[in-house]
Design a binder for these strands. Structure first.
Length: 555
RNA sequence: UGCCCGAUAGUAUAACGGUAGUACGACGGUUUUUGGUACCGUUUGUCUAGGUUCGAAUCCUGGUCGGGCAACCA
């Protein structure tokens, strides 16, 4: 059952187009990343939008790498992008590259020159910028603007032939130097770059600019709805102008607001800086908002797709609460993660009336949320256990439902225990807790009649294994680091990674990568890619909601 | 000083001239062998001033505020 949901503005446009027979109801979108960095959660929004909307209207989506700038692009990025899209659960119709169209694009440029709509300009970048004027003053034409078609044709061919050095000449559209839209003031179409391209190698030394590649690529592929972000709004008249004057397929551009999330940054440039300056451990650092980072952190494709669905599509600037992303992953993992026990900050508990050396195996459900059950595992129980230090208080407040002198609580999947005594060291730190257990209170066959409010997790000391636990916090200390004074890196949270050693139940030695685990009462965790059988490593994906922590804050 | 886009609870997003709703968050409660989950409830909103209209979040005008635009980046 899909629930009733109102259409976003793009769906409305498409339904309208279908109703009016535009393109005979055909829908073809494209996702056009530049292979110059890893995809992040903002791209996920665009991916879900482009692929999702095509799916919804029986259309298709092309994956097209916008690779018109060889100096920043690399096949490493191509591979990671493809992996991330597949992992998110989407399939592209065709894998394409803007560079596939370099010949065609060159011919398009020649066409415009022949129409007297493009010219070769010998000015330097600085001169061109100066001649463009300012938003309030029109630009001024230079002597090159009136070159003959024949001369332009020859010069452009010479540019292609490699007769000039980088920056010596450019090809420009002959448009309107007085336009209030700066993008229409004779925009650059081609520039010279003697650079090796990841696909075309050294075949070219001139490369088209975004504005002269994107719309035409859309048209070549007969994209019906070319969806991009808000900053391309002023490019739209140019997009249309090239298509009109080239008389090619009329793809249409639509813009939506990119998604931003608080306490992180969402630009490839900034993320690249974090990587290059070793402020994080690579693009897939679990603190990164990249798809690969979220994956390594333990986020699932479904949780990310649900997140993208929930944030919606609109045209206003936004800064989404990180808590929504957390909600989405908890929602998914609650239904799928296997419950296990791990003690992160241990203190020893001795059950004084439990026979020394005795071990019994108890059963623990894998996931109580799964209807019909999701199997179970065996838990060794013995006289000495590790429990969480915070589950004992020497002077507990009235609402504390765990252990303290005389207090009773249940050990998850085991017995009810009562705290009888505790031991302190010379510095006054509690080092050991002594309890007695009620044999008839065993989980599943409790006839003790005792009611306790709290349940705590534990690990049998003689059976415990150890694991490295990586706890993550937000990467930045402020909501919107890019909008603060100074460099965004000043706002990095240097305590965003904490490494601990935990005692884990023996079954966790078999933990698999790619599966979520809930460490009961502690959060959701996953096996990190650095993990090995000798050195188990878990990442904390997200904590559980913690009502007690809130209670403590109020006290 | 020019042009363009936008403005609905703390956040995000609906309502398409006719009862301002949903989700997350926050707060309170019920259930619970996870202080989790589930369930129930509460709270908070149409930037502003005019106009059109029987009726405006919605249409019009002015203003305010926020964002974008002058890369041989995309």
């Amino acid at each position: 059952m899909s629930e009733e949901r109102s259409l976003n503005f793009l769906e409305e446009i498409i339904e309208n187009d279908i109703a009016n027979g535009v393109n005979n109801g055909r829908v073809l979108t494209r996702f056009p990343p530049e292979p110059n960095g890893y995809l992040h959660i903002g791209h996920a929004k665009s991916i879900c939008l482009n692929f999702g909307i095509a799916q919804k209207y029986n259309g298709k989506t092309n994956l097209r790498f916008d690779d018109t700038n060889p100096v920043t692009e690399d096949t490493e990025y191509v591979e990671s992008i493809k992996e991330d899209i597949k992992w998110l659960g989407f399939e592209w119709a065709e894998e394409l590259y803007s560079s596939d169209y370099f010949d065609q694009l060159y011919e398009f440029a020649v066409t415009l020159i022949k129409k007297g709509l493009a010219y070769v300009d010998d000015s330097s970048a600085e001169e061109i910028a100066a001649q463009k004027g300012t938003p309030t003053e029109p630009g001024t034409p230079n002597q090159y603007r009136s070159r003959s078609i024949e001369e332009n044709l020859q010069l452009f061919a010479d540019m292609k032939a490699g007769k000039y050095k980088d920056g010596e000449r450019v090809l420009r559209a002959k448009l309107d130097l007085a336009s209030p839209n700066m993008h229409m003031r004779d925009p650059l179409m081609y520039r010279i770059k003697h650079a090796h391209h990841h696909r075309t190698g050294d075949a070219w030394c001139i490369y088209p600019m975004y504005d002269f590649a994107h719309g035409q690529s859309d048209a070549i592929e007969k994209i019906t709805h070319s969806i991009c972000t808000l900053e391309f709004i002023p490019h739209r008249p140019l997009y249309d102008w090239f298509i009109e004057n080239l008389e090619i397929f009329p793809s249409k551009q639509y813009e939506f607001a990119r998604g931003n999330i608080n306490y992180t940054v969402m630009s490839k440039r900034k993320l690249l800086q974090l990587v290059n300056e070793n402020l994080v451990n690579g693009w897939d650092d679990p603190r990164m908002p990249t798809i690969s980072g979220l994956r390594r952190r333990g986020y699932t494709p479904l949780s990310i797709r649900n997140f993208c669905e929930r944030i919606g599509i609109a045209r206003r600037e936004n800064l989404i609460d990180y808590s929504l992303l957390e909600f989405c992953i908890r929602e998914d993992l609650n239904k799928t993660a296997w419950r296990r026990m791990a003690v992160l900050d241990p203190i020893k508990m001795v059950i004084t009336n439990y026979p020394e050396g005795h071990v019994e195996m108890l059963e623990g459900e894998n996931n109580p949320e799964v209807e019909g059950g999701d199997g179970s595992r065996q838990l060794p129980f013995s006289r000495e256990l590790w429990i969480e230090r915070e589950d004992f208080m020497e002077n507990p407040p009235k609402k504390f439902f765990r252990l303290g002198p005389g207090l009773m609580t249940r050990l998850k999947n085991a017995y009810i225990v009562r705290c009888d005594d505790f031991v302190k060291d010379a510095e006054g730190n509690v080092t050991e807790i002594h309890c007695s257990y009620f044999p008839e209170s065993k989980s599943g066959s409790d006839t003790s009649g005792i009611n306790v409010k709290g349940t705590i997790h534990w690990v049998s000391i003689p059976h415990a294994k150890t694991a490295e636990i990586r706890l993550y916090d937000r990467l930045f200390k402020v909501e919107d680091p890019s909008n603060e004074d100074g460099d965004f890196k000043e706002y990095i949270n240097h305590e965003s990674l904490q490494v601990q050693t935990a005692y884990i139940e023996p079954d966790l030695a078999k933990a698999e990568t790619g599966r979520g685990y809930q460490f009961i009462r502690k959060g959701y965790f996953c096996v990190d890619k650095d993990s090995s059988s000798e050195n188990l490593i878990f990442n904390r994906t997200v904590t559980l909601k913690d009502a007690w922590a809130k209670e403590v804050k109020k006290m």
